[in-house]
Design a protein around this nucleic acid. Structure first.
Length: 257
DNA sequence: ATGGTTGACATTCAA
């Protein structure tokens, strides 16, 4: 079972890329972020034509998440973090086969010390409390998405710039990610590689992709129960080379069985 | 310190 995460930065613009990548990569389950589409405009019919069912939770202009699944039912759909008031559509969870999928579009946070940064940390606290509970109900859990946090120095092109005081790498953000991982959620990519310089996001500016000035902020976390089944994990750079790309590349994990 | 690019929407905001 191949499970992937992709921040498409507007599904309206990126639908042709998504179709091509679904064909190339043939994932079984996909979590999308930044669809930027209200639910009435979600292209579920087009996706069904590519062989994927979909559930979605979106809004106009900003945010928006979805889960797609090929040849499988998508059950017990949860939109948003239970009990956490949020105008921003950043979370959808569902069960596919024997695996619970939680798809997160984590708050960016703008800059350390801003209101948006405070919201990011509050939001991550709410996610932590929810996932602790979710793991009790669903031990076979995959938490994936655009985390907007680079786990450590190997995951940034320049650790001196992306340091403990910088957004996406600050101490409080990394601590919040570590607290999620301490629930028993493992960065699938790091189960198989200690390589530095493998990124999932490159700024549109300053030819960052060509120069590989990126960050690894798109993650697939697998629970303790799924860890033995995590056979491989990687990032598909190719869609980032296509014309008019998303600034993010798809990240994936394969589960045996 | 600023601006560099993209997307959505309407001229500036968010990333």
């Amino acid at each position: 079972m191949k499970i992937a995460s992709w921040n498409v930065n507007s599904l309206n613009v990126r639908l042709p890329h998504l179709e091509q990548w679904l064909r190339d990569a043939a994932p079984d389950v996909v979590g999308l972020q930044e669809t930027k589409l209200e639910d009435a405009k979600f292209p579920d019919t087009a996706l069904a034509g590519f062989g994927y069912r979909s559930v979605f939770h979106g809004q106009k202009t900003y945010n928006g998440v979805a889960i797609l699944a090929r040849e499988r039912a998508i059950e017990d759909v949860q939109a948003g973090i239970p009990g956490f008031e949020d105008d921003q559509k950043r979370v959808i969870a569902a069960t596919v086969g024997d695996v619970r999928i939680v798809n997160l579009y984590v708050v960016n946070g703008q800059d350390v010390g801003t209101d948006k940064y405070a919201y990011k940390l509050r939001w991550l606290d709410a996610v932590h409390a929810w996932l602790a509970d979710e793991l009790q109900r669903h031990p076979k859990l995959v938490v994936l998405g655009d985390f907007n946090i680079a786990p450590d120095a190997r995951d940034v092109h320049d650790p001196e710039v992306w340091n403990e005081a910088h957004i996406l790498t600050s101490t409080a953000e990394r601590d919040a990610l570590r607290r999620l991982q301490a629930l028993g959620l493992h960065d699938a990519f790091r189960l198989h590689s200690d390589e530095a310089g493998v990124f999932s996001w490159w700024d549109y500016r300053q030819a960052a992709f060509r120069r590989n000035l990126g960050l690894r902020i798109d993650l697939t976390l697998v629970s303790d129960a799924l860890r033995p089944r995590a056979a491989a994990s990687g990032i598909d750079r190719e869609p980032r080379t296509w014309d008019r790309p998303s600034d993010h590349a798809p990240a994936w994990v394969t589960l045996a069985g």
